[in-house]
Design a binder for these strands. Structure first.
Length: 427
RNA sequence: GGAGAGAUGGCUGAGAGGCCGAAAGCGCCGGAUUGCUAAUCCGGUAUGUCUCGAAAGAGGCAUCACGGGUUCGAAUCCCGUUCUCUCCGCCA
């Protein structure tokens, strides 16, 4: 959520930004509601002030005066009630509009409405040159007995899967590898709840119960299965004020992620590219409210993500995501797309990680602030997030890039200590 | 799951219908003293929001977990929710 004052002060900028991001918001209605709200506050404050004054006189008033003052107090109470009701209504409408407005955008982010407008920053690593027709991860996993999609479908429906044998070891190894890396980078690691309340989801920028919600919600409760540990890690400091000296706070969480993928039918439905549940190691940061600092932090997170894929020996490219494709909370966003030789006709890039600087967009609604000693007031912190490893997609890239002519898959050096072997052979 | 106790500022903790945005202490900031450090003394020190102001600032209102209610008036009384603690039950 953007600051209301900022929206009103910089209306043209905000309007242009909504345009760039392909979001339609009725900003004029917002301004009208803001004015209404202001008026109601002024009237309400006056009435309350009067009410306080009247009730303050009562204990000292004479017996004769009292009944009249009490009657006056009653009258004022009713008026105050009415104004407050109106104010609530107006504020609800105001908030509805306000929360549709996306974050402002980094001046260097490419402007454009679709993912095709995103800019490739760099391509890293050598794509493998196969002297045979490479298989896709589904065929590979079947040969090596790493994955059971049928069983997943039977038990929970399409989009669920069982990992088996070295598939499991690879999942655990990828998690360990990411955790080891993040520890070395000074992150505090945690495992996190796989469920979270509506208000936390909303604070992070997810819409838990809308029509096209990507979220599984639990009936008769305000809980939802999390789509990412970004939700829980960000929610961790909800309503707190931290000393600015403690920033940046660097955390990382291991969690399951659940996504309904509503409306995504038919798009890359084969295999485990688009699934309803996967394991992820997520990077999260709380930074001082200074775009220069949070941008630097953002670059650090990107660097970590890249080093993780470099370490795995998987070729990838970095995309600077276009304004229209980055989602509401992000101020700037990068994606890593790994080379997936089994995708499409002759291999394609597929998204494996992303990282965003959300500046104060999430913290404003979550009410996460920091305080600078010796100064008045508080400021909303900046939040950042990124994927260290999303297991299923990393697994796809890993299997497809490391396949051999005989159908076996070479285990990347860095994972061998956990997988316990160099190569996964067909059974 | 059952029974009970509780939630107060950055922290600890008093207050039990009006004199309470809230004692005291800690912490922090400014100053005095000080060879340095420590100690001592004095003063200041919540957040949000609206109005006025170029600003410094001044004023109104709100906030004692959250949401309702009672009352002329609620941190204080009542109801609901969330969370914490203790005991019992169950359990990996």
């Amino acid at each position: 959520m953007l600051d209301l004052q900022f929206i009103c002060d910089e209306l043209d900028q905000v309007r242009q930004n909504c345009e760039n991001r392909g979001i339609q918001v009725d900003l004029d209605a917002l301004i009208a509601l803001r004015d209404q709200r202001r008026e109601l506050i002024t009237t309400g404050d006056k009435l309350r002030s009067e009410q306080k004054e009247v009730s303050g006189r009562i204990p000292k008033a004479s017996k004769e005066e009292k009944p009249q003052l009490i009657a006056q107090g009653k009258e004022l109470r009713e008026q105050v009630g009415k104004v407050e009701e109106q104010q609530k209504e107006v504020e609800q409408k105001l908030r509805d509009i306000q929360s549709q407005i996306p974050n402002m955008t980094h001046p260097d982010s490419p402007v454009g409405r679709s993912e095709d407008d995103s800019v490739t920053v760099r391509e890293v690593g050598e794509k493998p040159n196969f002297d045979f027709k490479p298989l896709d991860h589904v065929d590979l996993a079947e040969k090596l007995d790493l994955l059971d999609l049928n069983a997943g479908g039977k038990v929970a429906g399409h989009g669920f899967y069982f990992l088996k044998n070295e598939g499991v070891l690879l999942e655990l190894a990828l998690v360990q590898y990411a955790v080891e890396k993040l520890l070395a980078e000074g992150f505090t690691i945690m495992t996190t709840p796989d469920l979270a309340r509506d208000e936390v989801l909303e604070g992070i920028g997810f819409n838990p119960r809308g029509n096209e919600a990507q979220i599984y919600s639990v009936e008769n409760s305000d809980l939802n299965l999390v789509a990412t540990a970004e939700i829980t890690l960000g929610g961790m400091l909800k309503d707190e004020v931290v000393d600015i000296e403690t920033l940046p706070i660097k955390v990382a969480g291991i969690s399951h992620c659940f996504r309904t993928e509503a409306g995504a039918h038919g798009r890359a439905t084969r295999g485990i590219y688009r699934v309803h549940q996967f394991t992820k190691v997520e990077i999260f940061g709380f930074a001082a409210p200074d775009t220069k600092l949070s941008d630097e932090f953002h670059q650090q997170i990107l660097k970590i993500e890249e080093e993780i894929f470099q370490g795995l020996g998987i070729p990838y490219r970095v995309l600077d995501i276009a304004t229209g494709d980055m989602g509401g909370p992000a101020y700037r966003k990068y994606d890593l797309e790994a080379w997936m030789p089994g995708r499409g006709e002759a291999g394609e890039y597929g998204e494996v990680t992303s990282c965003s600087n959300c500046t104060d967009y999430q913290s404003r609604r979550l009410n996460i602030r920091c305080k600078t000693p010796g100064t008045k007031g508080t400021q909303f912190v900046h939040t950042l997030n990124g994927t260290a490893v999303a297991v299923t997609r990393a697994l796809i890239a890993l299997l497809e890039n490391n396949q051999q002519a005989d159908g076996s898959v070479v285990v990347p050096e860095v994972l061998r200590k956990w997988v316990g072997k160099d190569r996964i052979e067909a059974r």
